[in-house]
Simulated scan of single mutants.
Amino acid sequence: IRRMFIPAEGCVLVDADYSQIELRLLAHISGDEAMRAAFTTGADIHTATAAQVFHVAPGDVTHEMRRRAKAVNFGIVYGISAFSLSQDIGVTVAEAKAYMEAYFATFPGVRKYMDDVVAKAKEQGYVETLFHRRRELPEIRSSNFNMRSFGERVALNMPIQGTAADIMKLAMVAVEKRLKKELPEAKLVLQVHDELIVECPEPQAAAAATLLEEEMEQVAHLSVPLTAEAHWGRNWLEAKG
Results as ranks from 00 to 15, higher is better:
Pro159Asn: 13
Tyr126Arg: 15
Ala119Glu: 10
Lys180Asn: 14
Gln161Lys: 12
Asn157Tyr: 07
Pro138Gly: 10
Gln191Tyr: 01
Ile197Met: 01
Met172Arg: 09
Ile197Ala: 00
Ala155Asp: 04
His132Val: 05
Thr163Asp: 04
His193Asn: 05
Lys169Ser: 04
Glu136Tyr: 11
Leu137Lys: 05
Gly125Ala: 04
Gln191Ile: 02
Leu156Tyr: 10
Glu185Ile: 01
Lys169Met: 14
Thr129Gln: 05
Val175Gly: 02
Arg178Asn: 03
Glu123Gly: 01
Gly151Phe: 03
Lys122Arg: 09
Val175Arg: 08
Leu179Asn: 07
Pro203Val: 07
Asp166Leu: 11
Gly162Asn: 09
Ala119Ser: 06
Val189Gly: 14
Ile197Arg: 01
His193Asp: 02
Leu183His: 06
Leu156Gly: 05
Arg153Val: 07
Val198Phe: 07
Ala155Phe: 06
Ala209Gly: 05
Lys122Glu: 07
Asn144Val: 02
Lys122Cys: 02
Asp166Trp: 10
Met158His: 10
Ser143Ala: 11
Glu195Tyr: 02
Arg133Met: 01
Gly125Val: 08
Met158Phe: 14
His193Val: 00
Tyr126Leu: 13
Val127Asn: 03
Val175Ile: 15
Thr210Met: 09
Glu176Arg: 14
Ala164Phe: 12
Leu170Arg: 13
Asn157Ser: 12
Gln204Glu: 08
Gln191Phe: 03
Ala186Leu: 08
Ala174Gln: 10
Lys177Ile: 01
Glu136Phe: 07
Val198His: 09
Leu212Trp: 09
Asn146Gln: 09
Glu185Arg: 11
Ala207Ile: 07
Val198Met: 02
Ala209Arg: 03
Lys177Cys: 00
Pro201Phe: 04
Ile197Trp: 00
Glu123Phe: 01
Thr163Asn: 10
Ala206Phe: 12
Glu199Met: 13
Val117His: 00
Arg134Ile: 12
Glu182Tyr: 11
Phe145Thr: 03
Leu196Ser: 05
Asp115Arg: 15
Val118Phe: 00
Met147Lys: 14
Ser143Asn: 13
Val175Lys: 04
Met172Asn: 03
Lys180Pro: 09
Pro201Met: 04
Glu185Val: 06
Lys181Ile: 11
Ile197Asn: 00
Gln161Tyr: 13
Leu156Asn: 02
Lys187Trp: 08
Glu195Phe: 01
Gly125Arg: 06
Ala121Val: 10
Gln191Met: 05
Glu182Gly: 02
Lys120Gln: 15
Ser149Ile: 06
Leu196Arg: 06
Thr210Phe: 05
Leu183Ala: 01
Glu195Val: 01
Glu136His: 14
Ala205Tyr: 10
Ala171Phe: 15
Phe150Pro: 03
Leu130Arg: 12
Pro201Cys: 05
Leu212Glu: 02
Met147Glu: 14
Pro184Ser: 03
Ala174Cys: 08
Leu190Ser: 06
Asp116Ile: 13
Ile167Val: 15
Ala186Lys: 04
Val198Ile: 15
Met147Val: 14
Leu183Lys: 06
Arg133Ala: 02
Asn146Val: 06
Lys180Arg: 15
Phe150Ala: 09
Val173Thr: 15
Pro159Tyr: 11
Tyr126Gly: 07
Leu190Lys: 05
Phe145Leu: 08
Glu152Asn: 07
